[in-house]
Design a binder for these strands. Structure first.
Lengths: 364, 364
DNA sequence: ACCAGGAAGTCATACGTATGACGGCAAGGA
DNA sequence: TCCTTGCCGTCATACGTATGACTTCCTGGT
């Protein structure tokens, strides 16, 4: 037996063990380099766009052609490893079944894409019973190291509970959306107080003095802010009155809660609901009692979801800029990642008057 | 000057250049190894759970304690690079503002999490004007190599256009949801035909013979299937008639389209709408013409979105199992990734009778 | 003639993990 | 006593990219 090894066999130290080795491997920068007749470094330089005097234009062309020919796409895992960054941020929202957060996501994604970042969404209500220690949590769910977090309408406590155990808590760039200003590193939120003030002003102008309030059971900064703003708005006006009913976040529960308000001897002339869904419940209750909207009863919502225009009459509500919330929040987060310190921001909420409000019925 | 270099300086070949070197670096498996007094290999072995005779229990404990102490979390980028897999799949949906797809996402995410996969969602309508050649597209958006794709309610052409240029087309595991069976590698869809058949049966039983159809302008397998099923259902019954109006996917447009149907001399007694949103438009039109639902006009929807219960009266519609669609679709995709060949699946659609249907008014 | 300086590339390395091959060591059989 | 057989770990390496240091070549100034 001749002492010759395989002809082109590389030295192959004691442990050369590549994984799976699929028959169809994707081209790497090395393949591009070979085809273009340059070194791998050059390929990398070209793709990074860093050749203000390092690579000739002729070579750039060659590399680009070779890349195109092979259909080369850089291996993100390798980049992430090398660069120590993933250009990915997590967007935490309460639920995806609410279109409001779909809009937030869209706004955030668009802003992120412009800076070549991408967004992974995490609905915090996903029941996690099946998660496995010790790497569970959104971070595991994202399956990627994250460069930052954007949290919408989530309590800080919930969030830190969510991220706390596994996430690099204090060090992780974080922007809170639609949450209490001043808490957390940076916040972008909606001026719901102003929206509520305008809304109540509108009702007062119409002549309403007896109010019913429909608010959700769940806590959350926005809802507290809405309630406070409502009270403040009434405080300045003599002769006003209001009663509050709390409800779960469903149409049916809201309808029942609304009934308790409508069945009071001193029935309110206007129902101010903290969300459009609750307003839908109010509509239902009104119909059950034979009250016409808006002639007998004015109803208002909040958020301006699609259902506001589905309802009949169309709902007077306060529009929240969901898309912009996501976009501006992402901008703030990117600023934070750049080392700049974004300042807290407040977005306007816009009163949208439709058909569900009118002067109160004449006293009987 | 003594020839002594720095005391513990490693050999340091000609090019030892680590990137950024943040002051606060996350612990790596090497750090854990040092603390536990073992080698990095051992740490890796332990975390992989592969020690049926390679690592003693005492060592396992030590490693786990060290990991916990340091708050170690494995670097995903490094794993991805080494393993050649990301355990991430892309979910393509038409839009996130439709709660239906939120439910699909939830179902898919839950199923994925059970197998330690994660889901990145991509709304295909995101306008891509700002994307940069040559690595644009969902793949760039996902910012990660993908192990597979789940595409919901998307035409194959649209999808391949989306993925085609950059994605590894034919090789990428792909499951289509709610789309034409037989096209593409594997599909999971809803038996909308049966749903429509039941729905029409319900209306026929009530005595309706004159129908109006409200269908969306956009194409898509489901809508074609719904229309065909509707026609088939009527075909067997003598004396039936139907007129169709097409509309954009908004309440207002649908209302206008519905008006054209209601203003015909042979006004239909039932409006069969291909989506709950369109049904909302029909409600609006009916009210404009002073028609009561369901006494003067029956209206039906499709999908069973939240708005179906917001409307008054509540809408008779066909419920589609969005959550299960996502879950089963993900299962199929994971099967595909395991090398198994999932068979096409069809999920049941359930007729949900509420208050918007009744016998037609007596002939005048 | 010689060197400074710039332009164009290449070299070598590290990022953090996973894993096949290999090495001690103790127990037990011959 | 010596060899075999497991058990417990460690070694060395590769995954694909990005980048500081280095080399080579060329032009032009003195």
């Amino acid at each position: 037996m001749p002492p010759t090894g395989s002809p082109a066999e590389p030295p192959a130290g004691p442990a050369d063990h590549r994984p799976g080795k699929t028959p169809e491997t994707r081209p790497t920068s090395k393949d591009v380099a070979r085809l273009a007749g340059v070194s791998q470094s050059t390929v990398s330089l070209v793709h990074a766009g860093k050749w203000p005097g390092r690579v000739s234009e002729r070579t750039v062309r060659a590399v680009n052609e070779a890349s195109a020919a092979l259909g080369y796409r850089p291996n993100q895992a390798a980049r992430h490893l090398r660069l120590g960054t993933t250009r990915t941020v997590l967007l935490v929202v309460p639920a995806l079944t609410n279109p409001f957060f779909g809009a937030v996501h869209t706004g955030a994604s668009e802003a992120a894409a412009r800076r070549d970042f991408s967004v992974v969404i995490y609905p915090s209500r996903i029941e996690a019973g099946t998660e496995r220690a010790p790497f569970a949590s959104p971070f595991a769910a994202a399956h990627t190291a994250l460069d930052g977090v954007l949290a919408s309408s989530t309590a800080v406590e919930t969030l830190s509970e969510l991220l706390g155990s596994t996430g690099p808590g204090p060090g992780l760039p974080l922007v809170m959306l639609d949450s209490e200003p001043g808490v957390g590193p940076a916040t972008v939120n909606v001026d719901v107080a102003a929206g509520m003030r305008d809304l109540v002003g509108h009702l007062l102008d119409l002549g309403h003095r007896d109010f019913g309030r429909l608010t959700p059971h769940i806590d959350g900064w926005t809802f507290t802010a809405r309630e406070n703003a409502f009270r403040t708005a009434l405080a300045g006006v003599p002769g006003t009155r209001s009663t509050r009913a709390r409800t779960h976040f469903t149409v049916h529960d809201a309808a029942e809660a609304a009934l308790t308000l409508l069945d009071r001897p001193d029935r309110p002339t206007a129902l101010v609901c903290d969300d459009d869904v609750l307003a839908a419940g109010a509509y239902k209750a009104a119909r059950q009692r034979g009250l016409r909207i808006p002639e007998d009863l004015s109803v208002t919502g909040f958020d301006d979801l699609i259902i506001a225009t589905v309802m009949d009459p169309e709902l007077t509500t306060v529009r929240l800029p969901a898309h912009r919330l996501g976009a501006d929040g992402m901008s703030a987060l990117l600023d934070l990642l750049d080392g700049r310190r974004p300042q807290d921001q407040s977005l306007p909420a816009e009163l949208t008057v439709r058909g569900s409000t009118a002067p109160p019925p004449a006293r009987t």
